[in-house]
Design a protein around this nucleic acid. Sequence first.
DNA 1: GTGGTCCAATGGTCCAACCAATTTCCGCAC
DNA 2: GTGCGGAAATTGGTTGGACCATTGGACCAC
Lengths: 246, 246
Amino acid sequence: MSLDYNSLPPVHTIARDDAVLKALVGFVGAADLQPGQKLPTERILADRLKVSRNTVREALTRWEGLGLVERRQGSGTYLKAAVSADMLHMPLTLAGGHDFASLMQTLEIRRALEAEAASLCAERASPADVAEIERKLDVMEQAFRTRDGMSAEEDWEFHQAIYRVSGNPLFEQIIAAMHELFHRFWEHPLGVRDFGHASFPYHRTIYECIAARDSKGARAEALKLIATVEDDLKRGAAKLKLPGQI
Amino acid sequence: MSLDYNSLPPVHTIARDDAVLKALVGFVGAADLQPGQKLPTERILADRLKVSRNTVREALTRWEGLGLVERRQGSGTYLKAAVSADMLHMPLTLAGGHDFASLMQTLEIRRALEAEAASLCAERASPADVAEIERKLDVMEQAFRTRDGMSAEEDWEFHQAIYRVSGNPLFEQIIAAMHELFHRFWEHPLGVRDFGHASFPYHRTIYECIAARDSKGARAEALKLIATVEDDLKRGAAKLKLPGQI
DNA sequence: GTGGTCCAATGGTCCAACCAATTTCCGCAC
DNA sequence: GTGCGGAAATTGGTTGGACCATTGGACCAC
C-alpha cells in the first residue's frame, strides 16, 4: 500500500490581477460606490495600484464578463451591480440555445425552481409580503384585461416578487438569467402573440395559496402554470412545423 | 433609388476581441478539439489572426472567466469545456457567499434541481444508462468502504451520471457550478471530515428507483438525500458556534 | 533510476505609444 | 445671454515589443 498524498494540497501562489480586483473591491467599499457610478480611470488605477494598465484591463475584463461592470469607450467604466468582498461567481454557458429543445430544457429548470420558490414563499411570506404580491397580481390582471393579454412585463414582476419573498436571491438570479435568454427568442415576432394566455388564471391561484400559507398548494399551482406554458410552447412549435432555428 | 449597402462593410473595426473569439470557435470546431486538449499559443494566435497578443489575451481572459479554458503559465492554454457558435452566457454572482446562510441557499437550489433531475432520469433512462449509473454507484460504495467515507470524488461522479441521463445538460451545468463553490469551503480543513456520511445509503435507494423507472420514488429519495446534507450542515454549524466566516 | 542543470516554450507583466469614441469646453454667430 | 459647432481633453481599445516566471523536456553525472 502506498502513502496517502492527499494531505499535500497545492501551494497557494498569488495572482496579480486577483490582487487588483481585491483592491478594487476595497475601493468601491470605501468610496461607497453605487451601481451606475463611475470607477476610476484605467490609467489612474494602474498608477495608484503600481501595476501596468494591461493588468488593470485584464482584471476589469473579468469583471465585465461577470456583468459587474460596464465599459464605455471615451466615457469610462461604470459599476453595474453591487460588489462586496465575499462574492461567489458562477458563470454558466449554455450550449446551443437557438432551438426548440433548448427552450424546453430551460423550462424544465424553471419548473423545478418555480415550484420550490412558490413553496418557500408560502412558508416564509410575512403579511407585508403577501400584500406586496397581491399588489403585483392586481397590476398584472389589470394590464392583462386592458391590453388583451399583453402583460408580459407585469407578469414578470409578479413572479419576481415571489422569488424575492422566498428569501433566497438565487431563485431570482437564475430564473432572471434564463428569462433574459427567453426573450431573445420571442421578441422576434413569430406569430405567438397570445403566448401565455392559458397560464393567466394560475397566477391568482398561486397567490391564494401563498396568502393561505399553503406551501404544497403553491407548489402544485406553480407546476400547473409551467405545464400550461410548456403546452403553449409545444403547440406553437407544432404549428410552425418545428423549425430548427427560431 | 439608392444602392443596397448591406453587402459591404461588416468590417473588422468593431469588437476586435469578439472577432477573435469567433475565430477561435471556428478553429476549435475545425480541429475538433476536445476538452483537455491544448489551444494554439497566444503568440501563434496573435500572428495568425493579425491582431496584437494583448487582444488575444483579452479574449482568452473572457473565456477563462466563463470557465471555457484554463491557462497554465509555462505550459499552455487548455480547453476545459466544449464550445460551439451559439452559446449563451449567464453570469451569476451571489453576494455574501462565505457564510452559512449562503451555503443553505445553494442547497435550496440544489434540492429543487436534484429532485427534478432524479425524476426525469427515472423516466428517461435506457437500460445502458441504468447500467452506467449502477457502475458509478458500485465504484462509489467501494471507495466509501475502503477509504472510510472519503468518497467525495466518486460521489460526485454518481450524481453527474444522473444529471446526464436526465437528458438536460442544464442540470449538470448549474449544479456543477455550485459544486465548485461548495468545494472552496470544504477544501479548507475544518474538522468536518465525515461530512456526507449520513447521505450514503440514499445513493443506492435513488438508483433502485431509477432502475425501477419509479419517477416519484426517485424524487422522494433525492429529497431525503439533500435533507441529510442540510442536517449535517446545520449540525456542523451549530458545533462550530456558527462562525460568520468558514 | 535519481537528482541536477540547462534550455526552449509559454503564459504573465510591463511600457510607451497610437487609435477611436465620448465628453468637455471655448469661442463665435445670433 | 443663448445656441451651436468644432477643437481639445478624456477615456477605453489596440498595438508592438520587451522582459520575467514557470513549466517541461533533454541531457548528464552519479
